Simulated scan of single mutants.
Amino acid sequence: MVAERIPPLRPRLSTCTNSILANPGAFALFLDVDGTLLELAATPRSVRVPDGLSDLLGQLTRRLDGAVAIISGRLISEIDQILSPLKLTASGVHGAELRKAPDSDIERVTPVLPLEIVEEMRKLAARIPGVIAEPKGPGLAIHYRLAPHAEANILAVIEDFLDRHAGAFELLPGKRLYEIIPSGLSKGTALAALASLPAFRGRVPIMIGDDIGDETAFAAAEGMKGFGLRVAGEYYHEEMADFSGPRSVLTWLERIAGAAQQPAERARSL
Protein backbone atom coordinates (compact mmCIF):
# COMPACT_ATOMS: atom_id res chain seq x y z
CA MET A 1 0.00 0.00 0.00
CA VAL A 2 1.06 3.52 -0.64
CA ALA A 3 0.71 6.04 2.11
CA GLU A 4 -0.45 9.44 1.05
CA ARG A 5 -0.12 12.59 3.05
CA ILE A 6 -3.17 12.91 5.27
CA PRO A 7 -4.91 16.22 4.52
CA PRO A 8 -6.07 18.44 7.38
CA LEU A 9 -8.70 16.41 9.22
CA ARG A 10 -12.29 17.53 9.10
CA PRO A 11 -13.89 18.02 12.53
CA ARG A 12 -15.75 14.68 12.62
CA LEU A 13 -12.72 12.68 11.49
CA SER A 14 -10.42 14.65 13.76
CA THR A 15 -12.59 13.90 16.78
CA CYS A 16 -12.79 10.23 15.85
CA THR A 17 -9.03 9.97 15.24
CA ASN A 18 -8.04 11.62 18.50
CA SER A 19 -10.49 9.47 20.45
CA ILE A 20 -9.42 6.10 19.02
CA LEU A 21 -5.71 6.91 19.29
CA ALA A 22 -6.19 7.86 22.93
CA ASN A 23 -8.12 4.70 23.83
CA PRO A 24 -8.26 2.07 21.06
CA GLY A 25 -9.79 -0.49 23.39
CA ALA A 26 -12.97 1.56 23.55
CA PHE A 27 -13.70 1.35 19.82
CA ALA A 28 -14.86 -1.14 17.19
CA LEU A 29 -14.18 -0.73 13.49
CA PHE A 30 -16.60 -1.71 10.70
CA LEU A 31 -15.35 -1.45 7.11
CA ASP A 32 -16.94 -1.56 3.67
CA VAL A 33 -14.75 -3.01 0.90
CA ASP A 34 -15.36 -1.71 -2.64
CA GLY A 35 -14.78 2.03 -2.88
CA THR A 36 -13.53 2.08 0.72
CA LEU A 37 -10.60 -0.34 1.02
CA LEU A 38 -10.39 -0.96 -2.74
CA GLU A 39 -10.68 1.38 -5.69
CA LEU A 40 -13.76 0.70 -7.80
CA ALA A 41 -13.20 -1.31 -10.96
CA ALA A 42 -15.07 -1.95 -14.18
CA THR A 43 -16.26 -5.37 -12.92
CA PRO A 44 -16.38 -6.99 -9.47
CA ARG A 45 -13.69 -9.49 -10.47
CA SER A 46 -11.24 -6.89 -11.81
CA VAL A 47 -10.59 -5.03 -8.56
CA ARG A 48 -6.97 -4.57 -7.56
CA VAL A 49 -6.02 -5.52 -4.01
CA PRO A 50 -3.23 -3.38 -2.50
CA ASP A 51 -0.31 -5.46 -1.33
CA GLY A 52 -0.22 -5.51 2.46
CA LEU A 53 -3.97 -5.00 2.97
CA SER A 54 -4.39 -8.30 4.78
CA ASP A 55 -1.41 -7.56 7.04
CA LEU A 56 -2.74 -4.09 7.83
CA LEU A 57 -6.18 -5.38 8.81
CA GLY A 58 -4.51 -8.08 10.89
CA GLN A 59 -2.55 -5.39 12.75
CA LEU A 60 -5.73 -3.42 13.31
CA THR A 61 -7.51 -6.50 14.62
CA ARG A 62 -4.77 -7.09 17.15
CA ARG A 63 -4.69 -3.42 18.14
CA LEU A 64 -8.45 -3.43 18.74
CA ASP A 65 -8.53 -6.85 20.44
CA GLY A 66 -10.55 -8.44 17.66
CA ALA A 67 -13.09 -5.63 17.22
CA VAL A 68 -12.72 -5.26 13.43
CA ALA A 69 -15.41 -6.43 11.00
CA ILE A 70 -16.19 -6.20 7.30
CA ILE A 71 -19.67 -5.08 6.24
CA SER A 72 -20.09 -5.53 2.50
CA GLY A 73 -22.52 -6.18 -0.30
CA ARG A 74 -20.22 -8.97 -1.48
CA LEU A 75 -20.49 -12.57 -0.40
CA ILE A 76 -18.31 -13.35 2.62
CA SER A 77 -16.51 -15.99 0.55
CA GLU A 78 -15.44 -13.25 -1.87
CA ILE A 79 -14.28 -11.07 1.01
CA ASP A 80 -12.14 -13.98 2.21
CA GLN A 81 -10.60 -14.29 -1.24
CA ILE A 82 -9.76 -10.58 -1.29
CA LEU A 83 -8.22 -10.62 2.18
CA SER A 84 -6.60 -14.06 2.02
CA PRO A 85 -5.17 -15.50 4.19
CA LEU A 86 -6.91 -13.26 6.74
CA LYS A 87 -10.46 -13.99 7.85
CA LEU A 88 -12.46 -11.47 9.83
CA THR A 89 -15.82 -11.21 11.50
CA ALA A 90 -18.05 -10.19 8.60
CA SER A 91 -21.43 -9.48 7.10
CA GLY A 92 -22.12 -10.10 3.43
CA VAL A 93 -24.94 -9.32 0.98
CA HIS A 94 -26.18 -6.37 3.05
CA GLY A 95 -26.78 -8.39 6.19
CA ALA A 96 -28.07 -11.58 4.54
CA GLU A 97 -24.88 -13.42 5.58
CA LEU A 98 -23.07 -13.23 8.91
CA ARG A 99 -19.87 -14.70 10.30
CA LYS A 100 -19.81 -13.96 13.99
CA ALA A 101 -16.12 -14.75 14.55
CA PRO A 102 -13.17 -15.24 12.19
CA ASP A 103 -13.11 -19.00 12.82
CA SER A 104 -16.91 -19.47 12.71
CA ASP A 105 -19.09 -20.76 9.89
CA ILE A 106 -20.95 -18.39 7.60
CA GLU A 107 -24.60 -18.12 8.58
CA ARG A 108 -27.21 -17.37 5.91
CA VAL A 109 -29.92 -15.21 7.44
CA THR A 110 -32.45 -15.66 4.59
CA PRO A 111 -33.15 -18.19 1.82
CA VAL A 112 -31.70 -17.82 -1.66
CA LEU A 113 -33.46 -15.67 -4.25
CA PRO A 114 -36.14 -17.34 -6.41
CA LEU A 115 -34.56 -18.97 -9.44
CA GLU A 116 -36.87 -17.01 -11.76
CA ILE A 117 -35.22 -13.64 -11.05
CA VAL A 118 -31.72 -15.11 -11.26
CA GLU A 119 -32.49 -16.60 -14.68
CA GLU A 120 -34.28 -13.43 -15.80
CA MET A 121 -31.28 -11.28 -14.93
CA ARG A 122 -28.84 -13.69 -16.55
CA LYS A 123 -30.87 -13.57 -19.76
CA LEU A 124 -30.96 -9.77 -19.60
CA ALA A 125 -27.18 -9.67 -19.14
CA ALA A 126 -26.70 -12.05 -22.06
CA ARG A 127 -28.76 -9.76 -24.30
CA ILE A 128 -26.90 -6.55 -23.44
CA PRO A 129 -23.09 -6.51 -23.85
CA GLY A 130 -21.38 -5.07 -20.77
CA VAL A 131 -24.18 -5.92 -18.31
CA ILE A 132 -23.13 -8.36 -15.59
CA ALA A 133 -25.58 -10.35 -13.46
CA GLU A 134 -24.05 -11.37 -10.14
CA PRO A 135 -26.15 -13.81 -8.09
CA LYS A 136 -25.26 -13.73 -4.39
CA GLY A 137 -27.45 -16.43 -2.88
CA PRO A 138 -29.98 -14.37 -0.90
CA GLY A 139 -29.35 -11.32 -3.12
CA LEU A 140 -28.38 -10.32 -6.62
CA ALA A 141 -26.50 -7.43 -8.19
CA ILE A 142 -26.68 -6.38 -11.79
CA HIS A 143 -23.86 -4.14 -12.95
CA TYR A 144 -24.10 -1.75 -15.87
CA ARG A 145 -20.89 0.27 -15.54
CA LEU A 146 -19.83 -0.96 -18.97
CA ALA A 147 -23.32 -0.39 -20.42
CA PRO A 148 -24.80 2.77 -18.84
CA HIS A 149 -27.43 2.99 -21.59
CA ALA A 150 -29.04 -0.17 -20.18
CA GLU A 151 -30.02 1.37 -16.83
CA ALA A 152 -33.69 2.00 -17.65
CA ASN A 153 -34.15 -1.49 -19.11
CA ILE A 154 -32.57 -3.12 -16.05
CA LEU A 155 -34.67 -1.07 -13.66
CA ALA A 156 -37.90 -1.98 -15.47
CA VAL A 157 -37.15 -5.72 -15.20
CA ILE A 158 -36.29 -5.44 -11.49
CA GLU A 159 -39.37 -3.37 -10.68
CA ASP A 160 -41.60 -5.91 -12.45
CA PHE A 161 -40.07 -8.67 -10.30
CA LEU A 162 -40.55 -6.64 -7.12
CA ASP A 163 -44.20 -6.03 -8.03
CA ARG A 164 -44.71 -9.80 -8.37
CA HIS A 165 -43.11 -10.40 -4.95
CA ALA A 166 -44.51 -7.44 -3.08
CA GLY A 167 -42.83 -6.88 0.26
CA ALA A 168 -40.35 -9.75 0.06
CA PHE A 169 -37.44 -7.92 -1.56
CA GLU A 170 -36.10 -4.41 -1.89
CA LEU A 171 -34.25 -2.50 -4.60
CA LEU A 172 -30.97 -0.92 -3.58
CA PRO A 173 -29.30 1.40 -6.10
CA GLY A 174 -25.54 1.74 -6.07
CA LYS A 175 -22.65 2.93 -8.21
CA ARG A 176 -23.64 1.80 -11.71
CA LEU A 177 -25.49 -1.16 -10.28
CA TYR A 178 -28.81 -2.23 -8.83
CA GLU A 179 -29.13 -4.80 -6.08
CA ILE A 180 -32.05 -6.93 -5.00
CA ILE A 181 -31.88 -7.70 -1.29
CA PRO A 182 -34.29 -9.35 1.18
CA SER A 183 -36.65 -6.88 2.85
CA GLY A 184 -35.77 -5.86 6.37
CA LEU A 185 -32.03 -6.40 5.95
CA SER A 186 -29.33 -3.78 5.42
CA LYS A 187 -25.82 -2.91 6.41
CA GLY A 188 -27.44 -1.18 9.37
CA THR A 189 -29.02 -4.39 10.64
CA ALA A 190 -25.67 -6.10 10.04
CA LEU A 191 -23.77 -3.55 12.11
CA ALA A 192 -26.30 -3.83 14.94
CA ALA A 193 -25.97 -7.63 14.93
CA LEU A 194 -22.16 -7.59 14.90
CA ALA A 195 -21.94 -4.81 17.49
CA SER A 196 -23.78 -7.07 19.96
CA LEU A 197 -21.13 -9.80 19.76
CA PRO A 198 -18.72 -10.23 22.69
CA ALA A 199 -15.67 -8.81 20.88
CA PHE A 200 -17.61 -5.66 19.93
CA ARG A 201 -20.09 -5.22 22.76
CA GLY A 202 -19.81 -1.97 24.72
CA ARG A 203 -17.42 -0.38 22.23
CA VAL A 204 -17.99 2.79 20.24
CA PRO A 205 -18.64 1.78 16.60
CA ILE A 206 -16.85 3.42 13.67
CA MET A 207 -18.32 2.64 10.23
CA ILE A 208 -16.41 3.62 7.07
CA GLY A 209 -18.14 3.41 3.67
CA ASP A 210 -18.63 5.12 0.35
CA ASP A 211 -22.12 4.48 -1.03
CA ILE A 212 -25.83 4.80 -0.43
CA GLY A 213 -25.96 1.23 0.88
CA ASP A 214 -23.70 2.29 3.77
CA GLU A 215 -26.09 4.98 5.00
CA THR A 216 -28.04 2.59 7.20
CA ALA A 217 -24.79 1.47 8.83
CA PHE A 218 -23.74 5.09 9.39
CA ALA A 219 -27.09 5.70 11.07
CA ALA A 220 -26.72 2.58 13.22
CA ALA A 221 -23.20 3.59 14.33
CA GLU A 222 -24.22 7.15 15.06
CA GLY A 223 -27.27 5.90 16.95
CA MET A 224 -24.83 4.10 19.27
CA LYS A 225 -22.95 7.41 19.74
CA GLY A 226 -20.31 6.30 17.26
CA PHE A 227 -19.05 7.60 13.94
CA GLY A 228 -20.13 7.24 10.32
CA LEU A 229 -17.17 8.21 8.14
CA ARG A 230 -17.74 8.74 4.41
CA VAL A 231 -15.32 8.15 1.54
CA ALA A 232 -15.42 10.50 -1.45
CA GLY A 233 -16.10 9.01 -4.86
CA GLU A 234 -19.01 8.66 -7.23
CA TYR A 235 -21.62 9.07 -4.48
CA TYR A 236 -20.12 11.44 -1.91
CA HIS A 237 -18.49 14.62 -3.16
CA GLU A 238 -15.32 15.82 -1.45
CA GLU A 239 -17.17 18.41 0.62
CA MET A 240 -19.47 15.70 2.05
CA ALA A 241 -16.72 13.18 2.78
CA ASP A 242 -14.22 12.52 5.55
CA PHE A 243 -11.74 10.72 3.27
CA SER A 244 -10.66 11.66 -0.24
CA GLY A 245 -10.68 8.03 -1.41
CA PRO A 246 -9.53 4.50 -0.52
CA ARG A 247 -5.86 5.51 -0.34
CA SER A 248 -6.59 8.04 2.37
CA VAL A 249 -8.63 5.41 4.23
CA LEU A 250 -5.65 3.03 4.16
CA THR A 251 -3.31 5.77 5.34
CA TRP A 252 -5.64 6.50 8.25
CA LEU A 253 -5.93 2.81 9.12
CA GLU A 254 -2.13 2.52 9.13
CA ARG A 255 -2.02 5.38 11.59
CA ILE A 256 -4.57 3.68 13.84
CA ALA A 257 -2.77 0.34 13.58
CA GLY A 258 0.52 1.99 14.46
CA ALA A 259 2.23 0.62 11.34
CA ALA A 260 5.94 1.38 11.61
CA GLN A 261 6.66 1.56 7.91
CA GLN A 262 4.87 1.98 4.61
CA PRO A 263 5.48 -0.83 2.08
CA ALA A 264 6.18 -0.05 -1.55
CA GLU A 265 3.22 0.14 -3.89
CA ARG A 266 2.27 -3.18 -5.39
CA ALA A 267 -1.03 -4.73 -6.21
CA ARG A 268 -2.42 -8.08 -7.10
CA SER A 269 -5.46 -8.96 -9.14
CA LEU A 270 -8.42 -10.63 -7.51
Score class of each variant (00 low, 15 high):
residue 14 S to K: 14
residue 14 S to A: 10
residue 15 T to L: 10
residue 17 T to L: 12
residue 18 N to L: 12
residue 19 S to E: 13
residue 20 I to A: 03
residue 24 P to M: 03
residue 24 P to N: 01
residue 24 P to T: 06
residue 27 F to S: 04
residue 29 L to E: 03
residue 31 L to Q: 03
residue 31 L to W: 05
residue 32 D to S: 11
residue 32 D to R: 07
residue 33 V to I: 11
residue 33 V to R: 04
residue 35 G to Q: 09
residue 39 E to F: 11
residue 40 L to H: 08
residue 42 A to D: 13
residue 42 A to W: 03
residue 44 P to V: 09
residue 46 S to R: 13
residue 53 L to A: 02
residue 55 D to G: 03
residue 56 L to M: 00
residue 56 L to S: 00
residue 56 L to V: 02
residue 57 L to I: 03
residue 57 L to M: 01
residue 57 L to W: 04
residue 57 L to Q: 04
residue 58 G to A: 06
residue 59 Q to T: 02
residue 60 L to D: 02
residue 60 L to F: 03
residue 64 L to S: 01
residue 65 D to Q: 12
residue 66 G to H: 04
residue 67 A to L: 11
residue 68 V to W: 03
residue 68 V to Q: 01
residue 71 I to H: 05
residue 72 S to Y: 08
residue 72 S to F: 09
residue 73 G to I: 10
residue 77 S to P: 02
residue 77 S to V: 07
residue 78 E to V: 13
residue 78 E to M: 08
residue 80 D to P: 00
residue 80 D to Q: 05
residue 80 D to F: 02
residue 80 D to I: 03
residue 81 Q to A: 09
residue 81 Q to P: 01
residue 82 I to G: 04
residue 82 I to R: 00
residue 82 I to V: 05
residue 83 L to A: 00
residue 83 L to N: 06
residue 84 S to Y: 01
residue 84 S to Q: 02
residue 85 P to H: 01
residue 87 K to Q: 12
residue 88 L to Q: 02
residue 90 A to S: 15
residue 91 S to P: 03
residue 91 S to M: 08
residue 93 V to S: 12
residue 94 H to K: 10
residue 94 H to V: 15
residue 97 E to I: 07
residue 98 L to G: 11
residue 100 K to W: 06
residue 100 K to H: 05
residue 102 P to N: 08
residue 102 P to C: 00
residue 103 D to F: 05
residue 105 D to Q: 15
residue 106 I to D: 07
residue 109 V to G: 14
residue 109 V to F: 11
residue 109 V to W: 14
residue 110 T to P: 09
residue 111 P to V: 15
residue 113 L to Q: 14
residue 113 L to D: 07
residue 114 P to G: 13
residue 115 L to Q: 11
residue 118 V to D: 05
residue 120 E to M: 14
residue 121 M to S: 06
residue 122 R to C: 13
residue 123 K to A: 14
residue 127 R to Q: 08
residue 129 P to F: 12
residue 129 P to Q: 09
residue 130 G to S: 12
